[in-house]
Amino acid sequence: MLRDRRHEMIVRIVRSEGPATVEALAERLHASPATIRRDLVQLHDEGLLRRVYGGAMPIDERDDPFVDVAAVRGAEKDKIAQRCAEMVKDEETVLLDIGTTAHRVASYLRGRSLTVVTSSLAVLEELHDEEDIQLIMLGGMVRRDYRSLVGFLTEDNLRQIKADRLFLGTSGVRPGGHVMDTTVVEVPVKRAMIAASDQVVLVADMGKFPGTGMARVCGPEDLDVIVTNAPGDQATLTAMREAGVEVITV
């Protein structure tokens, strides 16, 4: 597993499950205890967790997982987001998924004349004062930890929408090109977003290869474009190309 992906997983485990020992993290992430110790030192220095004797614990149980994940690979996500924003044409209707990279895409859409549809409260916060952007929030149940709206109301709203393009987030991409998610409740919303869009653009930084996640969102045949910075995973990107997906590497 790549270092950045390992860091993201450590932050998620500690935030969602509480204090964890070096040995438990090493076994779970298939890494050596020495590697995990180095990871914890770096994550502690970055303020993403608190390193303690023998392991790590969350800084504050009320910390926001969205903020934790947003801090990982920030510069790389910015490059992907900027490239995605360049694809958008004025007056388009853009559908933005939840997630930290999609939120960064929103930041690069500021000042544009667009319609933006989203289930992300972070995108709402980013664009609420943009007068030239018509901002449409999908209804649903609030997932506070991840700043998103989910449920049958969200899915029903999406059936009334037709977007020019969707920027879709993911927990990981399998070697065959299958898009995965770790949170089952988000999967129906993502599928409804795909159905509502003329073009589906997957945003996936190098930490999403190889993929993790128990729930399959879609296959490569449902994608039109992937924007990534993961040139090293040629097997997955080749599978994408063979399925007709345009691969844009930043």
Rank of each mutant, 00 (worst) to 15 (best):
R83F: 05
P210A: 04
G111F: 08
L135V: 12
K79Q: 06
T228R: 01
D156T: 15
S119Q: 13
A56Q: 12
S197L: 00
T21M: 07
D198T: 12
A195C: 08
Y53T: 10
T118C: 02
E8T: 11
V245D: 07
R159G: 03
A56N: 12
P210W: 07
D222R: 11
V22R: 00
A34M: 14
H103E: 15
P65E: 06
V94W: 03
Y146A: 01
D39S: 09
E17N: 07
R6P: 12
G169S: 15
L109D: 01
A31K: 01
D233A: 06
A24H: 12
T170Q: 01
T115K: 09
F167D: 00
D97R: 07
G207N: 07
T115F: 04
E221D: 13
S120Y: 08
A192V: 13
A24T: 13
I226T: 03
D132V: 10
D78C: 00
M206D: 14
D63C: 00
F167A: 00
G139R: 08
Q82N: 13
G99F: 05
A192P: 05
V123N: 00
Y146E: 01
L40A: 14
M180Q: 12
R174M: 15
I194M: 06
L114D: 06
T183C: 09
I13Y: 04
G211W: 05
I80K: 07
M1T: 09
A239S: 06
A163F: 04
G213W: 04
L158G: 04
T238P: 00
A230T: 00
E186K: 13
L153V: 15
T249M: 06
H178F: 15
A26T: 14
R143W: 08
Y53V: 08
G140Y: 02
D205C: 08
V187I: 15
K89G: 00
V22G: 09
D181V: 09
R28F: 04
E242Q: 12
R73K: 10
A26S: 14
T238C: 01
